[in-house]
Structure formats: C-alpha cells, structure tokens
C-alpha cells in the first residue's frame, strides 16, 4: 500500500449515538481501490451503523467523510449511489414481488422515449449474471420470491456489479449460504476488487476474511481497535482484538 494513493473512502472521527447509547465514538476508517477491506467486530460493535452512514441510509452525528480525497456529505441513498457507492445488504433489500431484471435496475430503470426499455435491461441483466458465471438462474424474468437464498445473494451482488461502482459494500454476503455457494460468492468478491473497485466486506467468518481480504479493520464497542494487513495477521490475533483480549492498538503493528 503506497502512501501516495488516495483512499476511495476515508472516515475521520465519525460519531453516532442513539439516545444515550453511543454506537460509534470517533471511528476512523479507510478503504482503498482494488482491495477487499474486511470490517469485523462482534455483534453491537457498530459495523452496521458505520456502513449505514456511508450508504446514506442513516447519517452520522459528526465526523468527516472523504470520498476520493474530497469531503462529501451523504444524506440519502441517492447521494451514495451518485458517488458510485453500492451496498449489498444482509437482508438483501430485494423486492419479492418483482422479477430479477426489475430488481437489478430498481431505482435506475432504463427508459426509451417514455416507456421502460425492458429488452435492453433484460439483456444487460443476463450478461452480468453470465459474466459472474451464474448458472443456477434459469430465467431473469423469474420473480425473486421463487429464488433460493444463494440465488438471491447472487442477484444482489450482480446488482452492484451492473453499475460501475467505485465502492461496493457487502454486508455478510455468505451468512445464509451453503459451502459451494459461499465459495462462488467469495470468488465474485475477489474478482470484483480485482477490477479496481474498493470492496468493504462485513463478515463474522474469519477464515473467509483471511482468505479474501487485503486488510482487516476491527471495531469493538464503537471504536476502531485495529487496522491489520491480512497477510500479516492470523485468526487468533483477530479474535483477540474482537473480544478485547488484545490491548488497544491502532494501525496494529503490535499484532501477536
């Protein structure tokens, strides 16, 4: 990681409270282009809250967001997507009553004169899925309600690939998947980063994190306790930071 490179996103001292509960207390966070940045931490550590601020779903109380070095304010999902930020949520945020094409283009439908350009959208959706070597989906005109968990996840990730994004955030993409589907999704994640996109991966599975991530940033009780290189750390060390066994160490050269 050369020092001259500007991170795609950089958070400085962001804070967020819900009433008396301080969920994020002065968190710094960085994600670089072409890298998978894993964001890990126990339940309630503040991962989701951190991500929601970047996604424009729920803004921070204070702190600075730098996008490609420039200070930005992200007040709504529209702000986020116009910057090129795409989030794939754990609960997927797909609409069951719509088909795959409609879901992939939701909010950004293609229009020819005054009506929907269904043919072009269908073609793009199909070729995106094909590009991700998805073979389990027979028709892109299927309703999402008829898909399995893995297929839904694939559609959700394909949605983020379809739009040439600069930053893709994946919230536990493999939590509900079987072994082979997990493998396929992780390969998608790596491929996505290799195209030059900054990928933030939230996961509870440390093996998975170590396998696919370039850097690991660890949240504990609303504070960033470590920023490690995946190649220079190990499972035991990460778990110690998560549980608090390891002492506070930012930019943790002090790994075990």
């Amino acid at each position: 990681m050369s020092a001259a490179r500007v991170p795609v996103i950089e958070l400085k001292a962001v804070e967020k409270s819900f009433g008396a509960v301080e969920v994020l207390s002065g968190v710094n966070f960085v994600a670089m282009a072409g890298e998978v940045t894993a964001l890990v931490g126990d339940n309630g550590a503040g991962k989701s809250t951190l991500i929601k601020g970047i996604a424009g779903v729920q803004s921070y109380d204070s702190g600075t967001i730098l996008f490609e070095g420039k200070e930005v304010s992200i007040k709504s999902p529209v702000d986020a997507s116009s910057l090129g930020i795409e989030v794939v949520y754990q609960d997927l945020a797909l609409c069951d009553n719509l088909d795959i094409v409609q879901n992939m283009f939701l909010g950004r439908e293609m229009v020819r004169s005054i009506s929907l350009d269904d043919e072009t959208m269908e073609q793009k959706a199909a070729s995106t899925l094909k590009g991700l070597s998805v073979r389990t989906i027979s028709s892109v005109r299927q309703k999402v309600s008829s898909l399995s968990g893995g297929q839904r996840q694939t559609v959700a990730i394909a949605r983020s690939v379809l739009w040439e994004n600069k930053l893709v955030i994946l919230d536990e993409p493999t939590a509900a998947l079987g072994v082979s589907q997990t493998k396929q999704v992780l390969k998608m994640v790596r491929d996505l980063a290799d195209t030059g996109v900054a990928v933030i991966l939230i996961s509870h599975n440390m093996q998975e994190v170590l396998a696919v991530a370039d850097s690991v940033q660890i949240l504990r009780l609303g504070q960033m306790v470590a920023n490690l290189k995946a190649s220079e750390t190990n499972l035991h060390s990460i778990v110690s930071y998560i549980t608090g066994a390891e002492s506070l160490s930012i930019n943790g050269e002090a790994a075990l």
């Binding site: 609409c95 719509l98 409609q102 939701l106 929907l116």
Partner: peptide, 29 residues
C-alpha cells in the same frame, strides 16, 4: 395501466408495496 406497467414509476409503486425499505435503499423517494 401504461403508467403502472411500462414506466419506472409503475415499477417503483410495486417495489414500495413489496419492500418499502428495499425501495428506499434503491434510491426511490
């Protein structure tokens, strides 16, 4: 019917009915 079946607005109507939070996250007002 044209409005509901052939325009982005129509899709958004169905999306909001199916999953309002998903629709919001997709950037629909």
């Amino acid at each position: 019917s044209y409005l509901l079946n052939r325009t982005p607005f129509g899709i958004h109507v169905y999306a909001v009915g199916g999953n309002p939070e998903g629709a919001r996250r997709a950037g629909i007002n």
